[in-house]
Write a protein that binds this DNA or RNA. Structure first.
Lengths: 253, 253
DNA sequence: CGTTTGATTGACACGAGTCAACACCAGTGG
DNA sequence: CCACTGGTGTTGACTCGTGTCAATCAAACG
């Protein structure tokens, strides 16, 4: 992972605003202070007041909490290109933890560096706000899925979203994405038990809606999966339609 | 309702920043263009690109969607003092509807008026961002409740949050708030069936955790309810502890 | 190689949905 | 003034999705 990828943040923010060459240069510079976070390690812990803003360049991270009962609840995925808490400064402390689900490469950005962007790079600022709003929209969809979809549809919906988000930062190859997460992690993200995740995954595989073997998730017919899940991508506010590579192969009927 | 209340937005934003007299004057001016929305009417419909920013001054409104299956999912409550979509402009269209659950008094604010605040009233800008971040935190808590709490705890948690938010804009009187909503509305906010809402409400009443008769919700012992729900108010990022009037009467033990 | 972590399976329990009937209003109109 | 109405709240019986527990299997790893 993370070898010759283009800076994912730039790929992502292109969906939110038109970025000039100078904008992109500046973004590249922002992500210069890099660090590796081991899997299962926290990036920010609940109650802290983080000094810096974190940007995920590679790997999977998530927002989560542990309830009194001891169960974990995952509230969001941070994928390559995603930024954590652009403006925690306003709230003083953070009300949940951010942890690395896999080994992650992250960049630390001093808040001042963001403020300094304001004058010369308004497009970047707009793109950053755009991404915040999209995060909120995703949160709302998750809430809907959690409340009103059966486990199988919910999981399918999650896979659709993940696939599209990964596609938007060019992490889809041959209808597949790297997905080195355990079923227990999936359980905590869709709010069901790990055992039931297992059952539902088998069902989705049997229906040929997904392939999930080893550490790679494959979606051969995205439209069918989306249909099953009741997924519509409009809430992601992505600029382009799906990249052709991510689409199922054409049949010459 | 809505007779001699202080402008709820000002009460709310005081939690997010210190507002000068001049700031408050300016806020009062913002809410001058008022309108009544009838119960069950939409304020903004999914897919639209709203011209103005809406501010709820009185009544209950909500964000919601209708799924393909026909069920409604309520994703947020807009209480007096709450603002809808400060920055939809960035996204182009809105991916859910906003509707009045009861008769509402709303103010329409042209986006330009917000931009103009930037120069002279930085505290207002900060307070507005604060409120956006709190909205997001609330969304995350809802997600956790939806995924990991039983219906009874979930409902109790919702009541705790509602009570505190209403208290923060001085809408609590004698441990009670106005709550003229049907059990079906509750069902769509908690993500369960209306029949089950009924059963759970009876249980909560029997445990003397809440009183809900007619159109008023009473919480005599907030701490007990919070304990039952696993509620902690930190995520609301409110400035003060609960107002004394909202607390249960002191016993001289 | 044993040890460990994660995936899979089956039996059973329980929370919550569904459907249908009924009770209880607040309006409404005759 | 009363009968009708439609919306809401309440109840019971039954079904179904998911949770829980425990055993087993498979793969990863030092």
């Amino acid at each position: 992972m993370g070898r010759s990828h283009m800076n994912a943040m730039i790929l992502k923010l292109r969906h939110g605003a038109h970025l000039s060459h100078s904008d992109e240069e500046r973004l590249r510079a922002l992500a210069s202070e890099r660090r590796i976070v081991a899997a299962h390690e926290d990036i920010i812990r609940e109650g802290e007041r983080p000094e810096n803003i974190y940007l995920v360049l590679d790997g999977y991270a998530c927002r989560y909490t542990i309830l009194d009962s001891g169960v974990r609840s995952i509230m969001a995925y941070l994928l390559p290109g995603d930024i954590c808490d652009l403006h925690v400064a306003l709230l003083g402390f953070i009300d949940h933890s951010i942890g690395a689900l896999t080994r992650c490469e992250v960049a630390e950005i001093p808040p001042q560096a963001i403020d300094d962007l304001g004058a010369d790079h308004p497009a970047i600022i707009r793109a950053l706000w755009w991404s915040t709003l999209v995060d909120e929209a995703i949160l709302r969809r998750w809430l809907v899925s959690m409340g009103r979809r059966r486990a199988d549809q919910h999981l399918a919906h999650f896979f659709c979203e993940l696939y599209m988000r990964m596609d938007s930062v060019e992490r889809v190859r041959e209808c597949s994405i790297q997905f080195p997460l355990t079923q227990e992690v999936l359980a905590d993200t869709i709010g069901i038990s790990a055992v039931h995740v297992n059952r539902v995954l088998q069902q989705l595989r049997e229906m040929r809606l997904i392939g999930l073997y080893g550490k790679t998730l494959t979606i051969h017919d995205f439209d069918r999966l989306a249909e099953f899940a009741g997924f519509s991508s409009h809430y992601l506010h992505l600029k382009d339609r799906m990249r052709s590579e991510a689409l199922p192969p054409k049949r010459d009927t």
